[in-house]
Write a protein that binds this DNA or RNA. Structure first.
Length: 260
DNA sequence: CCCTATGTTCCCAA
DNA sequence: CTTGGGAACATAGG
């Protein structure tokens, strides 16, 4: 579920709530999640995002890495309310508690002792090295959509935003990425930044169950041009939006203005 | 009831 | 090495 804009939303909201606060207790409710020891008594010094992963830094240089995968959510409770179903862990502070809720249990939580950032992440909002991507892409023949979603190359773009970006630049998701020109890459870069930044402003896309830290829906679903619009008319050319499968993922596109 | 769908990514095999 | 498919899991809908 959460792609870059959703994780960035959580990141910003968490900064406002738990930055500089001390962890009072930790309860892991899902045995699939490994033990995370040494958290009690630590203070949160920073909250950052690496692609779709959330990184919580502590005052002993340890880092807590959380990846929400498909259905993970974070919820802040300032007054102690009932525990929602599928709550997987709880981190308690003096002024409230942070829950992770994850029905499908794909989310992962790990603690790393050292402070060395192993991050070699190309964040599309910051270091989108377009010439470098173009060079890598030139020798690959996989579809451009799969390339955009390869987290090792560009960290943070998932299924929804990949569909939206390709529609914005009028490119077929099946286009072999080796044929994408540098000029077209520059268009992709611009569209990616615009779409992701707008989606962050909207606090993400709620097509199904995404909620922010305070349980609120996002607003970007009202801005979607192709995703979740199968059978509706294209907002650019009035073709009919289709949904087909690409590498196992539901892919929305306009066959009229995204011919190639 | 059975089959399919779902926003992610790891692992395996052709 | 590259690429595609299935699995990990839970729930909803036809």
């Amino acid at each position: 579920m959460p792609e870059l804009p959703e994780v960035e939303t959580l990141c910003r909201q968490l900064r406002g709530v738990i930055a500089d606060r001390e962890i009072l207790s930790v309860k892991i409710l899902d045995p699939r999640l490994g033990a995370v020891d040494g958290l009690v008594g630590r203070k949160i010094t920073a909250i950052t995002r690496q692609g779709k992963a959330l990184e919580i830094k502590l005052d002993n240089d340890a880092r807590l890495l959380l990846h929400l995968r498909m259905t993970g959510k974070m919820e802040w409770q300032s007054a102690s309310r009932a525990l929602p179903p599928h709550t997987r862990f709880i981190i308690a502070f003096s002024h409230g508690r942070l829950l992770c809720i994850d029905p499908r249990r794909f989310a992962t939580l790990v603690i790393t002792a050292d402070g060395s950032s192993q991050a070699f992440v190309k964040d599309p909002l910051h270091d989108f090295r377009i010439e470098e991507l173009h060079k890598i892409a030139r020798v690959k023949k996989l579809p451009v959509k799969s390339f955009l979603m390869d987290q090792r190359l560009i960290a943070g773009i998932g299924n929804i935003y990949a569909c939206e970006i390709l529609h914005e630049v009028s490119m077929s998701p099946w286009r072999p990425v080796c044929g994408v020109s540098l000029r077209e890459w520059r268009k992709i870069e611009r569209a990616t930044k615009e779409i992701l930044e707008k989606a962050i402003t909207c606090r993400g896309t709620t097509v199904s169950d995404w909620r922010d830290l305070f349980g609120q829906k996002g607003e970007y679903q009202h801005e979607l041009k192709v995703y979740d619009r199968e059978g509706l008319s294209c907002l650019r050319c009035h073709g009919i939006i289709q949904r087909l499968r690409l590498s196992g993922r539901g892919t929305y596109f306009c066959p009229t203005c995204q011919r190639r």
